[in-house]
Design a protein around this nucleic acid. Sequence first.
DNA 1: TAGCAATTGTCTCACGTTGTCATATCGCGA
DNA 2: TCGCGATATGACAACGTGAGACAATTGCTA
Lengths: 329, 329
Amino acid sequence: MSTQREIARRAKTSLKTVSRVINRDPLVNAETRARIEAIIAEIGYEPSQAARMMRSQRSNVIGFLADGVATSSSSIDLIRGAQDVAWERGKQMMLFNIERGTASAANADSQLTAFRAEAIIYAAVFHQEVDIPNTGVPHVLLNCFDKRHRHTAIVPDDYQLAYDLTRVIFERGYKRPVFLNLNSDIVASHLRADGFVDAAAALGHDVSNAIYTAVISRAGTTPRLATHDILPPLFAGEETPDLVLCGQDTMAMNVYFELGELGLKVGRDIAVASFDNLEPIVSLLKPGLSTMELPYYDMGRAAMTLAIDGQDEVQVLRLKGKFIERHSL
Amino acid sequence: MSTQREIARRAKTSLKTVSRVINRDPLVNAETRARIEAIIAEIGYEPSQAARMMRSQRSNVIGFLADGVATSSSSIDLIRGAQDVAWERGKQMMLFNIERGTASAANADSQLTAFRAEAIIYAAVFHQEVDIPNTGVPHVLLNCFDKRHRHTAIVPDDYQLAYDLTRVIFERGYKRPVFLNLNSDIVASHLRADGFVDAAAALGHDVSNAIYTAVISRAGTTPRLATHDILPPLFAGEETPDLVLCGQDTMAMNVYFELGELGLKVGRDIAVASFDNLEPIVSLLKPGLSTMELPYYDMGRAAMTLAIDGQDEVQVLRLKGKFIERHSL
DNA sequence: TAGCAATTGTCTCACGTTGTCATATCGCGA
DNA sequence: TCGCGATATGACAACGTGAGACAATTGCTA
């Protein structure tokens, strides 16, 4: 790749004038500017980032540590949102897939330090508490929050998600929902249980006994579920549920099958609603799954915006999700 | 962040000696080395990549252009494979989500030029032909190949995938498979059709009339399918199929539902096999989907390896997939 | 013609690192 | 004591860019 010196030679002008053109100094004659710009376009010159970083002492690099995220399709939108903002703001986002506590994490840290990253976004695969110490570089936590409130965090508003969805459920006339929740060591499960109970209570219903923990473990890409044990008894008695609310779309998919085996067709005999809006599952299920979309894309955008602009004080941003209607409800 | 000069000052030694320690030059006294290393550890110093790039005229950066890939969960493994190799080899991979022909692509090119990327991996969302002109930077094509054979390419061996899967099918005793193929403008569809026909022929069966095009369009994350029109007539007559081979797992999921509506239970009345091994769908389907895994992770690794090592001549690497057995067959 | 503004050029420095070359120190044999 | 090689350390330049200080040149106006 050529340098400004080379361009100056070809334009029969000085290094300084080329520098002026590139840095939009107005003190350049229109003709000269055009001539130089033509040469730049012709040879496809781009100023060396390395040299610019050196000179300006600014890296324009934002690190994105994806803790297991990139293996989980549900949260690619976190990455997309962040990257879109980085692009709009002329920053370079460096993505690392890491596992906390392993060599991959240490390596990512070294690399980001070596590049003098201006901020680091740490993204978790699901809404959880983490313990990230303070370092020289400002951190923004994405889909997680710090144990000791040391860093700004962006999380989904799980209470609102459940609250709003529950309102929709009762407004549509469903009377006996059951909530197959995530395991209780997941932050979202408590928030959603509260939202579920509160929204029902506000409409005069008590659903506090209609919550079940349906996830056994989250290891690997596919959660182990307890739906097979939970559902049949629920549909054995008299007052059977008219809606199954699932903690995540993958569980809902499983529930479709379980209900089918009980002779119940979703959309006709029983309604199903869920959380995530995870393509392509939600569209491929028949009928399509009505679900609360987690605002991953916007969370990614918010995280990158805060990472670039910096923050005066530590804050926790809770982003709302929206109801995506299909035909399972 | 401090510099080597700062370290030299604190260690009461020269800049060069610090540099020697950092670059593992053996010509340093053990005591001096220990003293300097202690200071480095204490202040958490990392050499500036920007300065190293300048000095060495090597960026150690490999670009990864993901054309729609990162939105498609199926091909995250391409990215993971590439990144793992980059990490092992001490290179920095820069990922860009682009759409060919848009500003995002132009932007990615500028950025990679600015960073003086040593090679660029261009990854497509599905196996296809592309038209990538020669530039100064060597390209490796991933999941696609160049129209005019100008760049090394890594693609899945779709012929082998279909051939091997078809062999398994007949070895298990299935006699009347139908193949619901992808649309014919997708490269894989032809290769797989050939593999399907050839493998069957080698075992004495003629399946050339058992292939149907089941994908209407691939726009968006969820393909539009024609399975609803194709399947019922097939199961109306006497000699009904005993196995449905699907062009992709998402189609297989749809087929599970369609077959269910025809009163057929997969794994009991009818077998299903497919291509992709796309989690979490394959595991969540009941019974689990037996499918040919596309070698995305290995393809990503191969692409990065070739990108780093360079190549003497343009080649096309076809990587084999493997059969993942579950219970749909 | 002097004066002024606009334009271009020269020169210098700094950013952090590392290769080249030169220097300093030491032990040891002549 | 001198010289030698081996070991250890240091001085300096250069990578490409951008900025400041300031001079030189041109064209135009008063």
